[in-house]
């Protein structure tokens, strides 16, 4: 189900922990699986659980607890905007309105062409550089303006 490259990355994570605690790598393994497959289906979660010799339900609990996992398909570009207080004070509301108007979708929705998903995020620990967003969980864009957001969206294929 996962490519040899992804499995090799998971093995690197497993090696960080004592051999009898392979389960410690489940968060990273689910992340790696999500990067390859776009989202986490029940089959994917079960595959990861089997690979780490842990019960599928335990992996499912992890996948549903942490909010950066996607348990349903998302757009090719997931944009998660922080709207928490420090970002709000620095103009996140305006960026939120701009994103929603421009893409014609609300938070938690995906554009009809599957290009963008918009999500509302919680604090990303980078408050001095707000407003800010994450692109596909791993790339952060800071000090957003309506102009920089337009440019960013254009660059996302």
């Amino acid at each position: 189900m996962l490519s040899p490259q992804s499995l090799a990355l998971i093995d690197q994570e497993v090696a960080k922990y004592p051999p009898e605690h392979k389960q410690s790598a489940v968060m990273s393994a689910l992340r790696i699986a999500q990067i390859e497959l776009g989202w986490l289906s029940r089959d994917t979660i079960e595959f990861v659980a089997n690979y780490l010799a842990m019960p599928a339900i335990a992996a499912y609990e992890v996948a549903t607890f942490y909010n950066m996992y996607d348990l349903a398909p998302v757009g090719r570009n997931k944009v998660t905007l922080c709207t928490n207080l420090p970002c709000q004070l620095q103009g996140a509301d305006k960026i939120a309105q701009h994103l929603q108007a421009k893409l014609g979708i609300g938070f938690g929705e995906t554009t009809a062409d599957g290009r963008y998903t918009l999500k509302e995020g919680e604090c990303m620990g980078t408050c001095g550089h707000g407003p800010l967003c994450l692109h596909n969980n791993h790339k952060m864009h800071t000090q957003l303006t309506t102009e920089s957001v337009d440019k960013l969206l254009d660059e996302m294929k």
């Binding site: 968060m27 335990a58 607890f65």
Partner: peptide, 24 residues
Amino acid sequence: HHGYGAYICGEETALLESIEGKKG
């Protein structure tokens, strides 16, 4: 160890649960 979106894992025992590969 990389987290994946849960404020509660800043609480030290939730953090330990999370390193063990469980809900935080």
